[in-house]
Nucleic acid binder design. Sequence first.
DNA 1: TACTTGACCGTAT
DNA 2: CATACGGCCAAGT
Length: 113
Amino acid sequence: MIESHQRVYAAIAAIPRGRVASYGAIAARAGLPGRARLVGRLLGEVPDGMQLPWFRVLRSSGQLAFAPESRGFREQSRLLRAEGVEVINGRVPLSRFGLDGDLDRALWGMPGD
DNA sequence: TACTTGACCGTAT
DNA sequence: CATACGGCCAAGT
């Protein structure tokens, strides 16, 4: 297991219940700014059985990354709603559920704090 | 080796 | 809202 990948998993695991974060934010938090695609790729090959709140990771727009009506899309919507996150037309209002700005730092800490 | 793909992103028009 | 463009880069063909 690559160390940087471990940090990505850790960043995802650190997203609090009822909140969501973008692929880019996860990458940055893992010390890999600009590498959102890596996060997406890793999530596509998460080892079976590994506990990870993958469903709390969305696009920077708040859109789910899966095609509407696909299995992943429905599953992610279900899991998010199950913990109180609103999914409207395949999108989560980041203004209320996203980790951003000061809240981001409050929950995740300053990079290198 | 060369080219394509893809759970992405920010900026610009 | 929608296209386009350049970044990103590991895997698969």
